[in-house]
Amino acid sequence: MNAGVARQGNRIFATGREARLAVRNGIHRGQTAGIAPGFVQANLAILPKALADDFFRFCQFNPKPCPLLAASEPGDPRLPTLGEDIDIRTDIPLYRVWKNGEPVAEVPDLKDVWRDDLVAFLIGCSFSFEEALVEDGIPLRHIDDGTNVPMYRTSIQTQPAGPFRGPLVVSMRPLKPADAIRAVQITSRFPSVHGAPVHIGKPEMIGIANIMKPDYGDPVVVKDDELPVFWACGVTPQSVIAAVKPEFSITHAPGHMLVTDLRNSRLAVL
């Protein structure tokens, strides 16, 4: 268990299914970083069927921020390729409900808002490559501090698909130069969970005016002997939803993911 998880008081579960059942039964309601070591976690975007084909193409066009792990059938809350007995209506600790591109509520389940025309998209999460970085001895400050990773909307535009377009969101981890080089090598092996960084150093070059004021998550200090390293982030769909303004959509609340039955080690490419 890492220090960040210990400080947040997260319980540790032996499997992804155990973690999901704890969420479903109201035992765990916090962030999901580290709660089931070794198991893949996923970002969530739920959209009406009328927009599903365009969003699927958006994920295909933008595999760095939106590496698609699975999509449901319309109205079906199950995702059998990601795990036994998954119910996307109950198995994430906190959901964010959107109307016309604005978040209107955060809810612990979707029982009251689920519709027969909704399609769930599950997108790879950086928690998978973070585990590999920590195992290699690379310190991650937000984990050590017990906070959420800082995330920023950038001036980099995603590749449009139908109505879906908008800025790329990145997550940032400050690293010493030697660790940054090693992090590029390690995360390049995980293309289905964002892969290698999209930018290193000089945040102003990608439209970030103040690195201590993230758009999502919590600020972390970048020390004089460190470089800010930026990865494409699975919160990008939330930025796009805010730009596209669909009449109804659902995402996870940042840091509150679906824990799957997939193993992180299975996502690594040699």
Rank of each mutant, 00 (worst) to 15 (best):
47 L>G: 01
49 K>Y: 10
50 A>V: 13
55 F>D: 03
55 F>R: 03
58 F>D: 01
62 N>M: 11
65 P>C: 12
66 C>H: 07
68 L>F: 07
70 A>M: 05
70 A>E: 06
71 A>F: 12
72 S>H: 01
75 G>H: 10
76 D>E: 04
76 D>Y: 07
76 D>C: 10
76 D>A: 06
77 P>T: 11
80 P>I: 07
81 T>D: 14
84 E>W: 14
85 D>R: 13
86 I>A: 08
86 I>R: 05
92 I>D: 04
93 P>H: 07
96 R>G: 11
97 V>L: 15
98 W>P: 11
100 N>A: 14
104 V>H: 11
107 V>Q: 07
108 P>S: 08
109 D>G: 07
110 L>S: 10
111 K>E: 15
113 V>W: 10
116 D>Q: 15
119 V>I: 12
120 A>C: 12
124 G>L: 05
125 C>L: 07
130 E>K: 02
131 E>T: 11
133 L>R: 07
137 G>D: 03
139 P>N: 08
142 H>Q: 11
145 D>G: 11
150 P>M: 02
150 P>N: 02
154 T>R: 00
160 P>R: 04
163 P>F: 08
165 R>V: 14
166 G>T: 07
168 L>N: 02
169 V>K: 06
171 S>F: 03
175 L>M: 15
180 A>S: 12
185 Q>A: 14
188 S>E: 08
